[in-house]
Design a protein around this nucleic acid. Structure first.
Lengths: 114, 114
DNA sequence: CCCCCCTACAACCATATGGTTGTAGATATG
DNA sequence: CATATCTACAACCATATGGTTGTAGGGGGG
């Protein structure tokens, strides 16, 4: 069995909302339940609950039972997956610049091979 | 005058679509115009044009006139902005783990301050 | 046991999103 | 100039998204 490939649509989609990014930030400390989180935002408990569900689906946070609450914690691996994709794009960008530099450094009298 | 703060909604929203991520990847090489890009995807030219517009608004690519084409290039700074936010979350996560380690390392006979 | 608090989930609504087609403006080329 | 190609943009449609309210389940505390 293969490990599932990261679902970048879900990951970046989850991060594309200010409320959800703020939940990720707060959940780094891993102390608050959903209703405690909800108190920070001008929206209903159910709305925050949905945001947490979206973050959970994306693998960016986890919920853990604690008494009658469910404590929300950010998932370090989820963040890392997103970061690595951006890293790869930047690496390709750098490689491209290096190729261009190499081209510019070539003897200008030489013709590039077809 | 202040420089505009990054619009993370737009940036992550732009990255939350597989076609747009693929455009970012291809545009790293900065060679193709919109119609050339469009040939890679099973959708209309206009649809690809919209995707490019979304990426441009997000600051992830730039369009540059070249003859009658407009060459699409990825914008390195846009990628960097997204990455840095994820970096900060991870830093906070690490700081939290350090704090927890510090707590666990305390003399277990001492009571934490209320 | 009863009650309260936290969570889960369904139904609904308005607006955003991702696609389409069609029309019009620029720019090379015959 | 005439024409073909690339780009821009508007109008439209189906579905996804972000919010609401209402109802029901599950665990502590009196």
């Amino acid at each position: 069995m293969q490990i599932a490939p990261p679902d970048y649509d879900r990951i970046f989609g989850a991060l594309a909302d200010a409320t959800r990014r703020d939940i990720v930030r707060r959940a780094v400390d891993g102390q608050e339940g959903i209703s405690e989180l909800a108190a920070h935002y001008p929206m209903s408990f159910a709305a925050v609950q949905k945001h947490v569900a979206i973050l959970t689906d994306a693998g960016l946070v986890t919920k853990q039972r604690q008494g009658r609450r469910k404590v929300v914690r950010t998932n370090r691996e989820g963040l890392r997956v997103a970061r690595r994709l951006l890293d790869r794009y930047q690496e390709q960008w750098t490689a491209r610049v290096d190729r261009m530099s190499a081209l510019l450094a070539e003897d200008p009298h030489e013709e590039p091979p077809t």
